[in-house]
Computed example of a mutant assay.
Amino acid sequence: MRTTGNTIFMTGGTSGIGLELARRFRDLGNTVIISGRRQDLLDKIAAEDGIEGIALDVADPDSIAAAFAQVTSKHDVNVLVTMAGIMQPEDLRDPGHLPTAEQTIEINLLGTIRAVATFTPYLLKQSDPVILTVSSGLASVPLSITPTYSATKAAIHSYTQSLRIQLADTGIQVIEVVPPAVRTTLMNQENDERSMPLDEYLDETMTLLQQQPDADEILVDRVRILRDAERENRYDQVIGLLNSVG
């Protein structure tokens, strides 16, 4: 992936990693369009950061179709970033967790699949097309208090691998971005010293994108303890440490 001169559409991007990634891409000379459910927040970001926003609810297929029509009528998008997602705790002993699980699957997994399905035929006609999916270190080692989130990220990892293989002869580059725990408002981690500072995460991520333009995965050092746990025969140790109390 080239890191300048793109027109990038991002599902999500109004906070946390998504917003900071949008800013970093903008600063490198890309046109970036973010999306989200809250028009007031999109307007605020447009006024303060100069980043265009489009209303989008990835849980609604009609909203995805409308956002696609809107953004492609104004811009020659060549990069899709599927950033939108939620992370909620669940108690699997309580059947009341089911609505949370269903919403998480709808947004994290189906939202990704629907966005990719909508944009792929269009991207096939573009120059230097790229799809960036966003999984997590928890795709490899689950956090037990967020079981469906972890499961959706594992599914996105698998889906991205299949997508890459199916699109291998099309010219569309498929990249999986794999964050560790990062200090954002997701799960109230903004002050968690065990999580990676947001600026440090984006610094390393952008460096990897620039230094490895043909990369299939963007793996910062902090996420490798999770991603490499099974391969290095450390899975039992890592899942125990990740899910230890206190």
Rank of each mutant, 00 (worst) to 15 (best):
A115K: 00
L56C: 07
S135L: 06
I33A: 02
I33K: 02
R227C: 07
L19Q: 09
D236C: 02
D203A: 11
E90P: 05
D203Y: 06
T7Y: 00
N233W: 07
R224M: 09
R224Y: 03
I86V: 13
Q88D: 08
Q70D: 14
R93N: 13
T72P: 05
P142C: 08
Y159I: 02
S63Q: 05
T11E: 12
N6W: 05
D62Q: 15
M10D: 02
P142N: 01
I225A: 11
V177G: 07
V245W: 08
R114Y: 02
P179N: 00
L56A: 00
T14Y: 03
P197K: 06
R114C: 01
L186K: 00
A65N: 15
R2V: 06
L241H: 13
L28Q: 14
T14H: 05
A47R: 14
L138W: 03
L109T: 02
M83H: 05
T207Y: 12
E232C: 01
A155E: 10
N108R: 06
I51E: 05
Q237N: 13
R194Q: 14
Q189E: 13
T11H: 14
S244C: 09
L143I: 10
Q173Y: 03
D203N: 12
I107F: 02
V182S: 07
Q39E: 15
Q211G: 11
A47H: 11
I51R: 01
R194T: 15
M87P: 00
M196V: 12
E190M: 14
T160N: 09
D62W: 07
T100P: 06
A66H: 01
N243W: 05
S127K: 11
I225N: 11
D203M: 07
T120R: 15
N191G: 13
S162H: 11
N233M: 02
